[in-house]
Amino acid sequence: MITRHPVLPGQESVWDYPRPPRVEHVSKRVSMELGGEVIVDTDDVVRVLETSHPPVYYVPIDAFAPGALTPGEGSSFCEFKGGARYFDVHGGDEHRPRAGWTYPHPSPGYEVLAGRVAVYAGVMDRCTLDDVVVVPQPGGFYGGWITPEIVGPFKGVPGSMGW
């Protein structure tokens, strides 16, 4: 049995997010830093909301600094969004393999994700959403970004594999 955390005014529970996931444009500013450099700073932001997960934020590939993304190894498949490809992320003298991903040919309903990249916040120096520092989704497998207005519990914590 999952015990939902209380939701205060101005907060959202990940347990109110749908499955299959919903995609929506948001009026937020995303900034990412790596190796002492700002590699992304944009307000062209889309988020994906899925039950039990903090939002995953996607920004245009073109919003990344030149050279910040190079093709990474491997691929994966989401039953909803389709086939994903990975990017290695670079900033300053730092290199993070498979730290970003994209859906080059997303499934129907997720076409807005084409040409956009999401990044694991936990491997960046710093990620912010409207100047609020992001906490990465627990577990290292999922790429959700936790901010004070998002409440869980979140998939990725020990014991959540069956959620």
Results as ranks from 00 to 15, higher is better:
residue 31 S to G: 05
residue 31 S to M: 10
residue 32 M to N: 04
residue 33 E to Y: 01
residue 33 E to Q: 12
residue 33 E to L: 08
residue 33 E to T: 08
residue 34 L to K: 07
residue 35 G to S: 03
residue 35 G to V: 12
residue 36 G to Y: 00
residue 36 G to F: 00
residue 37 E to S: 08
residue 37 E to P: 06
residue 38 V to Q: 05
residue 39 I to D: 10
residue 39 I to S: 14
residue 39 I to A: 14
residue 40 V to I: 15
residue 40 V to F: 03
residue 40 V to A: 13
residue 41 D to Y: 07
residue 42 T to V: 08
residue 42 T to R: 05
residue 43 D to W: 01
residue 43 D to Y: 00
residue 43 D to G: 10
residue 43 D to M: 01
residue 43 D to K: 04
residue 44 D to C: 05
residue 45 V to W: 03
residue 45 V to D: 04
residue 45 V to P: 07
residue 46 V to S: 10
residue 50 E to F: 06
residue 50 E to H: 04
residue 50 E to R: 01
residue 52 S to G: 06
residue 53 H to E: 07
residue 53 H to Y: 08
residue 55 P to V: 13
residue 55 P to N: 09
residue 55 P to I: 11
residue 55 P to C: 12
residue 55 P to F: 09
residue 56 V to W: 01
residue 56 V to F: 00
residue 56 V to D: 00
residue 56 V to P: 00
residue 57 Y to C: 14
residue 57 Y to E: 11
residue 57 Y to M: 12
residue 57 Y to V: 13
residue 58 Y to E: 07
residue 58 Y to K: 11
residue 58 Y to G: 09
residue 58 Y to N: 09
residue 58 Y to D: 07
residue 58 Y to V: 05
residue 59 V to C: 14
residue 59 V to R: 08
residue 61 I to E: 09
residue 61 I to V: 14
residue 62 D to P: 01
residue 63 A to C: 15
residue 65 A to I: 12
residue 66 P to D: 09
residue 66 P to K: 06
residue 67 G to I: 12
residue 67 G to A: 06
residue 67 G to C: 06
residue 68 A to C: 12
residue 68 A to D: 03
residue 68 A to M: 12
residue 68 A to T: 14
residue 68 A to P: 13
residue 69 L to T: 15
residue 69 L to F: 08
residue 69 L to Q: 13
residue 70 T to I: 04
residue 70 T to S: 14
residue 70 T to D: 13
residue 71 P to E: 05
residue 71 P to R: 09
residue 71 P to V: 03
residue 72 G to S: 07
residue 72 G to V: 04
residue 74 G to A: 07
residue 74 G to P: 02
residue 75 S to C: 04
residue 75 S to D: 12
residue 75 S to F: 04
residue 75 S to Y: 03
residue 75 S to H: 12
residue 76 S to V: 06
residue 77 F to A: 13
residue 78 C to Q: 05
residue 79 E to V: 02
